[in-house]
Amino acid sequence: MKSPLAPMTFGLRKVLSPLTYRGLKVPTKGGHVSRGVWKALYRGRYELPEIEALFALLRPTDRLLELGTGMGVVSGLAAQSHPQLQVMTYEANPAMIPVIAELHRLNAITNVQVVNAVLTRSETPGIRNFYLSKSFAVGSLLPNGTTQESVEVAACRLEDVLRDFRPDVLLCDIEGGEAELFSGQNIKGLRAVIVELHPGVIGRRSEAAIYDSMAASGLYPRIELCSGTVVAFESVQLEK
């Protein structure tokens, strides 16, 4: 049975645009905003585990690297709350770049640099296919049952970005691309990493490889900040 609130709340889309989410004005007109995304924003639940973990670990003068910008809500909230924060965010879907720009304009956000590219483990920068679905939220480097088309996007090396931008915190939600990116990768120097895992896409072996890479980099789960498939890792100096 459908929720009696569903028709009423979704019908408010035309009235409530932009919609205010945790103090952030979010433009909701356009085909990229599905019923599920709009309802999550309206009810205060959109990307909540990521947001709560990020705000618990973030410091006002940090450098934040985000992979998978989406609509720009999570990094937008961080940038709005901490004006001294420096943010670099990577979004592969070219259709989302003007959406992110509009969110930044509405909220007068100027401390976020948006890059239309993906980060990879390639030996050299290049081009990758990015697979698009009807919902922006499931676009991925990996084709799946919802894929409708693919686009070519620039691929930058994670190692280069870590060296040049020198982030303190990394936030990652890239729909399964985390397996390729983090397995066996040394990411020492980061104080915290928040990553949404996608077990149905990457499998248990890749999950284990990600945990091993984090541990090898001195990053261990903060259990109280983990929720569902979102895992928060923090740097721990272990005694020898």
Results as ranks from 00 to 15, higher is better:
Thr110Pro: 00
Leu67Pro: 04
Glu196Cys: 07
Phe165Ser: 01
Arg205Ala: 15
Ser133His: 06
Pro221Ser: 09
Leu219Tyr: 12
Lys240Val: 11
Phe165Pro: 02
Gly139His: 15
Gly44Arg: 08
Ile223Ser: 05
Ala155Cys: 08
Val169Gln: 03
Glu196His: 04
Pro125Gly: 02
Gln86Ala: 11
Ser140Trp: 09
Leu171Arg: 00
Arg166Leu: 04
Met8Arg: 13
Arg157Trp: 02
Glu47Ser: 11
Leu158His: 01
Glu91His: 07
Leu41Thr: 08
Val26Asn: 10
Gln86Val: 05
Glu178Trp: 06
Ser75Glu: 15
Glu52Asn: 13
Gly126Trp: 01
Val15Lys: 12
Leu77Phe: 14
Arg63Ile: 03
Glu50Pro: 00
Glu207His: 07
Val231Gln: 06
Leu12His: 03
Leu190Ser: 03
Ala208Ser: 11
Cys226His: 08
Met71Glu: 03
Pro49Glu: 11
Ile202Phe: 07
Ser34Val: 01
Phe55His: 13
Lys2Ser: 12
Glu50Val: 12
Gly36Ile: 00
Val115His: 10
Glu50Cys: 07
Pro199Trp: 05
Phe55Asn: 10
Arg22Thr: 07
Ser81Asn: 03
Arg22Pro: 09
Leu132Thr: 02
Leu16Val: 06
Glu102His: 15
Gly31Pro: 00
Gly30Asn: 08
Ile223His: 09
Val193Met: 07
Val169Lys: 02
Val169Ser: 06
Ile109Ser: 11
Trp38Lys: 01
Glu224Thr: 09
Lys134Met: 04
Ile174Tyr: 03
Tyr46Gly: 02
Arg163Gly: 00
Thr146His: 12
Ile97Leu: 12
Val201Cys: 06
Val195Leu: 09
Gln185Tyr: 01
Leu41His: 11
Gly30Asp: 04
Asn107Ile: 08
Lys14Cys: 12
Arg166Cys: 00
Phe130Cys: 11
Leu119Asn: 01
Asn129Gln: 15
Thr89Met: 00
Leu12Asn: 04
Asp62Val: 13
Tyr42Ile: 00
Gln113Cys: 08
Lys39Val: 10
Ser183Ile: 06
Ile210Asp: 02
Leu225Val: 06
Glu52Met: 13
Ser3Gly: 11
Asn129Leu: 11
Ala215Cys: 04
Gly189Asp: 01
Ile127Met: 11
Leu238Gln: 05
Leu197Asp: 05
Tyr211Thr: 06
Leu67Glu: 07
Val87Thr: 07
Leu67Val: 05
Ala95Ser: 09
Ala137Cys: 05
Met8Ala: 15
Ile174Pro: 03
Ala179Leu: 01
Val115Tyr: 03
Pro94Leu: 04
Gly176Tyr: 00
Arg121Glu: 07
Ala79His: 03
Leu77Pro: 10
Val33Ser: 06
Ser75Leu: 09
Val193Ala: 05
Leu190Cys: 02
Leu65His: 03
Val26Lys: 06
Lys240Pro: 11
Arg22Ile: 10
Tyr131Lys: 08
Pro4Lys: 08
Gly44Gln: 06
Leu219Met: 14
Leu103Trp: 13
Tyr21Lys: 10
Lys39Phe: 12
Phe55Pro: 00
Pro143His: 15
Arg63Ala: 10
Ile223Met: 06
Ser227Thr: 12
Pro7Asn: 12
Val37Cys: 05
Gly184Pro: 10
Phe55Leu: 14
Ser150Glu: 05
Phe136His: 13
Val15Trp: 14
Ser133Gly: 15
Val87Asp: 01
Gln80Thr: 10
Leu103Glu: 14
Ala117Ser: 15
